[in-house]
Design a protein around this nucleic acid. Structure first.
Lengths: 195, 195
DNA sequence: CTTTATTTTCAGAATTATCTGAAAATTGGA
DNA sequence: TCCAATTTTCAGATAATTCTGAAAATAAAG
């Protein structure tokens, strides 16, 4: 590997992590190299830095492009194609989450809905549906939260995440301030939650 | 596979998804079988349902236990060990997130901190540190949010997730109500966010 | 159209992960 | 203690994946 020690350490770790997330180690390393590179790189730059075959780099770049994780760049007077990663790290995370959702969560929700439509043919199936319904509701809750929060501009998102659970305190305060007689103010939330 | 069609469809899908998340397909299937089973199962029950070898089941169960994902159960007058999954699906997700954090996020934070302590020996390393710092701050923001939110009881968590970005509206309202002259009320949040 | 730089494809090699059966270890009861 | 039931281990077999080099495809420049 032909990289400064600091970069190499990061690239190795990132590749390792990638392989635990269902991403090919090499693809993770290619992404890491691009992430810490000040300038966009072409395929041969990556070959040189990682010491892997040109064809391997080609396939890796293709995969990363399928994930919308790369920014293609052109260098004046150079026929080769260069790639970089988005400057805004939040946009990287958004892309990652969106793509994983599309590939993994959405198909899972589809299957769960299909299975919940079926009429159970036995006690075993009836009980399985109870569990599948719980799972379906949980996934919907989490994806709903993400879909909503995703619309926020980054600064607002940071604000929200920084608050953490303190938000709940604010909600309680809001409830106290605006509660109608009989606690009507909270019912809208509870009904969404309960399922 | 010796399962009712509905269960089989779920088990197959879950195994497939598992393999995209760095979990062995068979381990995913074992978990899925336990998840939809009304009663705890012993290893041989799983052998029968999945049609895989006894030793494979043994290793799979061991791995799931390392992830704290199983509840060992005992059946009166039976020497065999039985396993189930927690009834509360929220506790399952908490365990999953905790374990992944422990195995993947925490070591990553450690490495990032180490690399950020080093004095850069070149422009390339100097720039890499800029990017690594961005990544470190983002991960700290997200894990901080999780650590905080994790403490909430499930009902509160559901409430918070159901609100999604509407929380921001409530925050804005709070700011307007309690802002000190000169906007002092928001500074605590902005400083955490900006880095 | 031809040439040449560059990228992509893909069959087979190399590597890695997974699975199995047989043997060893463990455990609870007699 | 011994025995029998059960679980775990692990070396080798099997299967899946990743990687490579060579050839094909593509595309810009002449």
């Amino acid at each position: 590997m032909n990289l400064p020690p600091l970069c190499e350490a990061f690239v190795l770790h990132f590749g390792e992590m990638g392989s635990r997330w269902g991403i090919n180690r090499t693809v993770g390393q290619i992404y890491a190299v691009l992430f810490v590179a000040e300038q966009p790189l072409c395929a041969d730059d990556i070959v040189e830095r990682l010491g892997i075959s040109r064809s391997n780099v080609s396939m890796g770049l293709k995969e990363l492009q399928n994930w919308n994780l790369l920014k293609p760049r052109h260098v004046q007077g150079d026929r080769r194609e260069f790639f970089g990663t988005p400057d805004d790290i939040y946009s990287i995370v958004r892309t990652l989450v969106d793509e994983r959702k599309k590939r993994e969560i959405d198909p899972t929700l589809t299957i769960l809905r299909e299975l919940l439509m079926q009429s159970p043919g036995s006690d075993a199936e009836r009980y399985a549906q109870v569990r599948l319904k719980e799972m379906h509701e949980l996934i919907e809750l989490m994806t709903g939260w993400y879909a909503d929060v995703q619309k926020l501009e980054t600064e607002r998102l940071i604000q929200l995440l920084s608050m953490g659970s303190k938000v709940v305190k604010v909600l309680e305060m809001k409830d106290r301030l605006f509660a109608l007689p009989g606690g009507k103010g909270r019912r809208a939330i509870s009904s969404q939650a309960g399922g």
